[in-house]
Design a binder for these strands. Structure first.
Lengths: 129, 129
DNA sequence: ATGGACCTTCCAGTACAGGGGAAGGTCAAG
DNA sequence: CTTGACCTTCCCCTGTACTGGAAGGTCCAT
């Protein structure tokens, strides 16, 4: 399987595949005599795992950690659980921050509905912010 | 006022002040004969506006738009309202995405509580992701 | 005159996940 | 024989808001 076919099959780009290899997420594939990358079909499931990891909000570096453990012959379950915990905590934090920001912005926005440039003092940039 | 004093007064760094000047958020100040930046105290309120804009989730580029309008002698109210609208829509979108992600992750996490490496098939990387 | 604190410019790098494009090699079809 | 599609490596670019550091100039006190 050449890189273009793999990219098409996986729904990604050749650039991305070379990038993943460079980052250690994909093992270096065999090469044809001409030097072309020659993939075995089972990298597709690996790519699928990478995508699921990303969909779960993990960074490529974190996905790589899991793959490394797995490649080492161990079960990454515990590590995965910790990663999910970490990510979950981050998300909760982001959710709280965004909610506060949304409420602040909504207030500002409400105040800005009656646009009254005349009430902007020359000393200030904007009444609303 | 030299750049160090201004930075201290505004609670920021000299690096940031030069960066803002470079990005067009602060006007180029006068210079002392030695070439040192010599600020007028009124930039403090401008810096304050920048900080409020950032706190409202606007990017520096957006804050600059508002300042440019203001510097042009116009009232930026309408533009500010539009920016707030835009930002608000983005935040709502992020909130929805994060909520979905959190729920997905929570499910994965729950499934991962009983860590059972034995149930990981050798063909898959991880039962949980 | 010398040390230290301050200032100047410019260059480079951070994190993230790739994308763009150049210069050149390879392969099958017409 | 040439065209076009594919492949290779290489390096730089994206966006965001700065931060670090080098090399050198200035000011004030000692």
């Amino acid at each position: 399987m050449r890189i273009g076919e793999l990219a098409a099959a996986a729904g990604t780009s050749t650039k991305t595949l070379r990038f993943y290899e460079d980052q250690g997420l994909l093992p270096a594939p065999d090469r044809t005599p001409a030097g072309y990358r020659d993939y075995r079909p089972d990298v597709l499931s690996r790519l699928d795992f990478i995508r699921r990891g990303q969909a779960a909000g993990l960074t490529l570096a974190q996905v790589k950690q899991v793959l490394d453990i797995r490649d080492d012959g161990q079960a990454p379950c515990a590590h995965v659980r910790d990663l999910l915990d970490e990510r979950l905590a981050e998300i909760e934090y982001q959710l709280r921050s965004l909610t506060v920001l949304r409420d602040t912005l909504t207030e500002l926005r409400e105040a800005a509905i009656p646009v009254r440039p005349d009430t902007c003092g020359p000393d200030q940039v904007c009444r609303y912010v």
